[in-house]
């Protein structure tokens, strides 16, 4: 079995985001780039499955849509343990554009399971995985917090409003993964980092696809009023204050 993990290259989650060019672009000055946290969890689970002799997973490949400057993030995925990587050489368009490029990768290469993180921490669209599935006519399951392989069957737990559902799905399918799928993201060891240097990143040119959306500009949230402090010895005053000002208690 082969697993494809789709990875996105995002600013480190502690980045103080700033914008340039009349607030139309992210200021990438000094930004540390990382694998999108949910994609990193997907990759970790894929590698756990590969390490487990109880199933037939024997290859984990990562795919990324982005320019050459995102290769350090792809190398990181290889250092963590991915066997190979495919980069679609494109400046990222919208979710539909990215999904269309990933769908082309899947048309050219056979995979049994495709894993995507439930959202990216930059545009928070939660769209790419399900779009890839629809473009290829594959089943998709969202908000997966557990994934096990038993023979040809995949057993999945997904989170729903107020509970969990246990599902079975046949391969090939697209799994959209959330927290819980793996305990901690795997960290690259020195040996992995050395090996990653010689692993191949296949570069393919993008298909001609038009985005369906266009970013107009970014806005910072309106600044909130300064915090009103209540004395610790008069903590009960907080309730009076909340009652008077928020009318919620």
């Amino acid at each position: 079995m082969k697993i494809l993990v789709c990875i996105s290259n995002v600013p480190d989650t502690t980045t103080k985001v700033k914008f340039v060019e009349n607030d139309t672009k992210l200021d990438t000055n000094g930004v540390q780039w990382v694998i999108n946290p949910w994609d990193e969890l997907s990759l970790t689970r894929a590698l756990e499955l590969k390490d487990d002799a109880g199933n037939s997973v024997n290859n984990v490949t990562v795919a990324h849509v982005g320019p050459a400057t995102s290769e350090p993030t792809i190398r990181k995925a290889l250092a963590i343990g991915a066997d190979e990587a495919i980069r679609v050489n494109a400046d990222q368009g919208d979710a539909y554009y990215v999904a269309s490029q990933l769908a082309e990768v899947l048309r050219a290469n056979q995979f049994d399971i495709v894993l995507c993180g439930i959202e990216s921490s930059d545009y928070n669209g939660s769209s790419v995985g399900s779009m890839v599935a629809e473009l290829l006519g594959l089943p998709s399951v969202s908000a997966i917090s557990n994934l096990q392989i038993e023979g040809e069957k995949v057993r999945i737990t997904r989170e729903i409003d107020g509970g969990k559902e246990m599902l079975e799905v046949a391969t090939p399918f697209v799994g959209i993964v959330q927290k819980g799928i793996a305990k901690e993201p795997r960290i690259a060891a020195m040996r992995g980092i050395m090996q990653a240097r010689t692993k191949k990143i296949a570069v393919v040119e993008p298909a001609a696809v038009d985005s369906l959306t266009q970013v107009v500009k970014f806005d910072k949230p309106a600044p909130k009023a300064a915090c009103k402090f209540v004395d610790a010895d008069k903590a009960a005053d907080l309730i009076a204050l909340l009652q008077a000002e928020t009318k919620l208690i």
Binding site: T15, V17, S121, T213, V215, F218, D219, P221
Partner: peptide
Amino acid sequence: AFSGASFMEVEL
């Protein structure tokens, strides 16, 4: 966008 650190105006 950016996990709440910003909003993004998007044309559909």
